[in-house]
Amino acid sequence: MEVSSAQVVQAIYETLYMVGVSLVFATLIGLSLGILLVVTRKGHILENQAVFSTLNPIINVLRSVPFIILLVAIIPFTRLIVGTSIGTTAAIVPLVIYTGPYIARLVENSLLEVNAGIIEAAEAMGATPVQIIFRFLIPETLGSLILSITTATIGLIGATAMAGAVGGGGIGDLAITYGYQRFSTITIVATVVILVIMVQSLQSFGNVLARRIRRK
């Protein structure tokens, strides 16, 4: 039995929905955690040993759990947040928890690239910590942050393939249920092509945007 084009459209929609919504929340969480990881470290503008040494291992633990395990392990938490543990929306909670810490690490790496001298200049001007973050650190690394989020989004697309485990649907699920389990080569090929196009255009979009901001 072959898939209908309506099913493909539905799967694309589900994937975009999961990626889009998860990305928004994961970016908000990742950006905040990433900034915290940078500014609370030793010698930085809001040095705070307690916050840094709590946050750091938590992010490491979350980053170590394979997504398929995380997906199942946090089912009670997912039910608490969205009221259900099955379906596309339910897949978003683990996707956010999986991607947020990843973005946090990427953001951390980007922000650490900022020359300490720039921060010193900002402090000499009498900038507040909030001003240092939003007027110096983020603008100086915006290009690199956009590339980081592009990378994270691509990882997110990969992770949605496993969302089928909780009935999340999406292109990956289509590939597994129709292509793999029902031996439909055409479905496999079609889904792979769709995914390649998605990833490819996303990466190009990210590159163009980052280049604009870095104005080369």
Binding site: N115, G117, I118, E120, A121, A124, M125, G126, A127, T128, Q131, R135, F136, P139, E140, L142, G143, I213, R214, R215
Partner: peptide, 28 residues
């Protein structure tokens, strides 16, 4: 704000124009 400072390595914002760099302390 009453103490200006300049540096050996200048420490300008690379993503901002000359105008924006000079206006930074005033924006703050």
């Amino acid at each position: 704000k009453d103490i200006g400072m300049i540096f050996q390595q200048f420490h300008l914002l690379e993503t901002k124009t000359v105008f924006e760099n000079v206006s930074m302390p005033l924006l703050l």
